[in-house]
Computed example of a mutant assay.
Amino acid sequence: MEISIRKGILSELPQIKELFAGTITSVCQTDYNAEQLEAWKSSISNTERWNNLIKNQYFIVAEIDKEIVGFASLDHGNYIDMLYVHKDFQRQGIAQRLYDHLEHKSKYSNMESLTADVSKTAKPFFERNGFTTIARQVQVRSAVEIVNYKMQKTF
């Protein structure tokens, strides 16, 4: 299975947003309730935000056989804004490959650390990659509280 990483493009947004919603629904259901999952997924309707992810951030996709199986983004050279892997391609090294690209890009840009706001589901992955928790946070989306963690890794 050959995983390729490349820059994402605007025309792929419908597929990327579908992957985002599907991943949240199936992968995060043990850590969040249905109301929280729906509130989290509702951000796909913010077209301006999604367009800006690709236009203004370092936005990459992972592909296997020309199918997008994951995506990630780096904002301002040191903030991991997005890191999602398709629900059917979990635990195959895709998140690690995406993360490694973001870390390399950050180091290449002479950043001293990486930060991310991380879900309960993703927290163990980030800990394995050397991140520590700075704070437990409660985000409110569509009047629903969603717990996540501000995490950081210093180089």
Rank of each mutant, 00 (worst) to 15 (best):
M1W: 03
E2F: 05
E2L: 04
E2K: 01
I3W: 00
I3V: 01
I3K: 00
I3R: 04
S4K: 07
I5H: 08
I5E: 01
I5R: 07
R6F: 06
R6Y: 08
G8L: 00
I9E: 15
L10G: 03
S11N: 10
S11V: 13
S11M: 12
L13M: 06
P14T: 04
P14Y: 02
Q15N: 13
Q15C: 14
I16E: 03
E18K: 09
E18R: 12
T25M: 08
T25K: 06
Q29F: 14
Q29V: 14
D31N: 14
D31E: 15
N33T: 12
Q36I: 10
Q36K: 06
L37D: 04
E38C: 09
A39C: 14
K41I: 04
S42R: 03
S42V: 09
I44G: 01
S45M: 14
S45F: 15
N46R: 02
N51A: 10
I54D: 08
I54K: 08
I54G: 11
K55A: 11
K55T: 02
N56S: 12
Q57V: 03
Q57F: 09
Y58F: 12
Y58D: 09
Y58C: 05
I60G: 08
A62C: 05
E63P: 06
D65S: 06
D65E: 08
E67G: 04
E67P: 04
E67C: 03
I68G: 13
V69W: 06
V69R: 04
G70F: 04
F71C: 02
L74V: 07
D75N: 10
H76G: 12
G77F: 12
G77S: 10
G77Y: 09
N78E: 07
Y79E: 00
I80Q: 00
D81M: 07
M82H: 09
V85T: 08
H86P: 04
K87M: 11
D88H: 07
Q90H: 10
Q90D: 05
R91L: 11
Q92P: 03
G93K: 00
G93L: 01
I94R: 05
Q96N: 07
Q96H: 05
L98W: 06
L98M: 02
Y99C: 10
Y99F: 13
D100G: 14
D100I: 14
E103Y: 09
S106M: 05
Y108W: 10
S109G: 09
S109K: 02
M111E: 13
E112Y: 00
E112D: 14
S113M: 07
L114T: 07
L114N: 07
L114M: 13
A116S: 10
V118Q: 01
K120E: 10
K120I: 11
K120T: 05
T121K: 11
T121H: 15
A122I: 15
A122C: 12
P124T: 05
F125V: 04
F126M: 05
R128W: 11
R128C: 13
N129W: 08
G130K: 03
G130R: 01
T133C: 01
T133R: 05
T133P: 07
I134H: 08
A135Y: 02
A135G: 01
A135D: 01
R136M: 02
R136C: 07
Q137A: 10
R141T: 15
R141A: 15
S142M: 11
A143R: 15
A143N: 15
A143D: 15
V144W: 10
E145Q: 13
V147D: 13
N148K: 04
Y149D: 03
T154D: 06
T154V: 03
T154M: 10
